[in-house]
C-alpha cells in the first residue's frame, strides 16, 4: 500500500525528478551522479541489481539528491507500464526521462549474425520505445518534461562494420526526432545525444579509437544541453563536424570506404 516514506518536495527543496534507464554504470551512472549533485530525486533502472543498489547507496549517503533502485531488463517490455507507474508514485512526479541502455555486440565486416542484430535492436531501440510509449503521453498531458535518448554517431550512416548496431541507433535517432515533432507543440523537450567514442565497457570491443570522452564529461554535456533545451548534441562536440561530412559523403564513395 502507499508509502509515507517517499520524497516530498517543498518550495525551498523542490527536488526535480528524473528516471534514468540503464543507469548502473557508464554514462548512465555518470548522469545519475551528476543529476544527484544537482539535487534531483532519481529513479534508477538497470538489470544489474548489485551495481544499482551500490550506486543508490552512494548517492543517498551524500547531502544532495536521492535515488531509488529498480531492477528491469529493458527487453522485458511488458513490465514497463507498471514499473513506470510505481516509479512515478515513489518519486512524486517526473521532470526528465533519460534512456541510456545500449549494447554493442562486435562483428566483422564479413560475418552475419541475426541473434546479435536482434539483441541490439531489442535493447537499443525496442527497449527505448517501450519506455517512450508510456513516458510521452504523460508529458504530453502535462505540457511539460524532458525526454533524452542516448543514441550514437553510429546511427548517422549505415557502415560496413556493424549494420545491426547502426540500424538500432538510427531507429532510436529517428524515433526521437519524430517524438520531438510530436511533442514540442506541447512544450515537451526531446534531446538526442550522439556520443562518439566514450570510455566505457562498450569501448573495449572497438579496435581503433580516438577523441575518447569520459562518461563524466559526457554527463556534463548532456546536463548542459538539457538546460539549454538543445535538440541534438554530439559529445565530444567536434563529432558534429565530422558526422556532417560523413553524412554527406555520396554513396558511390562511401561504399568503397572501410569506415
Amino acid at each position: 500500500m502507499p508509502s509515507t516514506n517517499r520524497n516530498s518536495a517543498t518550495p525551498l527543496k523542490p527536488g526535480k525528478c528524473a528516471i534514468i534507464v540503464g543507469s548502473a554504470k557508464g554514462l548512465g551512472g555518470a548522469l545519475a551522479r551528476k543529476l544527484a549533485r544537482e539535487g534531483f530525486v532519481l529513479g534508477l533502472v538497470d538489470r544489474n541489481s548489485e551495481l544499482l543498489v551500490q550506486l543508490c547507496a552512494e548517492i543517498n549517503a551524500g547531502n544532495v539528491g536521492q535515488a531509488f533502485p529498480y531492477v528491469q531488463d529493458v527487453t522485458s517490455y511488458e513490465e514497463v507500464p507498471a514499473l513506470f507507474q510505481k516509479i512515478l508514485v515513489d518519486l512524486g512526479g517526473l521532470d526528465t526521462f533519460i534512456y541510456v541502455a545500449g549494447i554493442l555486440l562486435p562483428t566483422t565486416p564479413t560475418t552475419y549474425d541475426f541473434e546479435k542484430d536482434r539483441l541490439m535492436i531489442s535493447v537499443n531501440a525496442l527497449g527505448a520505445l517501450a519506455w517512450f510509449n508510456v513516458v510521452a503521453p504523460v508529458f504530453q498531458a502535462l505540457h511539460s518534461g524532458h525526454i533524452v535518448g542516448i543514441s550514437s554517431v553510429a546511427g548517422d550512416r549505415g557502415r560496413v562494420g556493424n549494420p545491426g548496431y547502426n540500424s538500432s541507433k538510427a531507429a532510436l535517432t529517428t524515433y526521437l526526432e519524430a517524438l520531438r515533432n510530436r511533442l514540442s507543440r506541447y512544450g515537451v523537450h526531446v534531446l538526442t545525444v550522439k556520443p562518439g567514442f566514450m570510455d566505457t565497457d562498450m569501448l573495449k570491443s572497438s579496435p581503433r579509437t580516438f577523441w575518447v570522452v569520459s562518461p563524466e564529461q559526457a554527463a556534463e554535456d548532456v546536463y548542459k544541453a538539457l538546460r539549454q533545451r538543445r535538440q541534438t548534441i554530439y559529445t565530444l562536440g567536434r563529432w558534429g563536424w565530422i558526422m556532417f561530412i560523413i553524412r554527406h559523403v555520396p554513396s558511390v564513395i562511401f561504399r568503397r570506404l572501410s569506415l
Binding site: Y77, E78, V80, P81, A82, F84, Q85, A130, N133, V134, P137, V138, Q140, A141
Partner: peptide
C-alpha cells in the same frame, strides 16, 4: 508481448 494499458487515463 502484450502491453498493459497505463493505469489511469493520462
Amino acid at each position: 508481448t502484450k502491453m498493459i494499458e497505463p493505469i489511469l487515463p493520462v
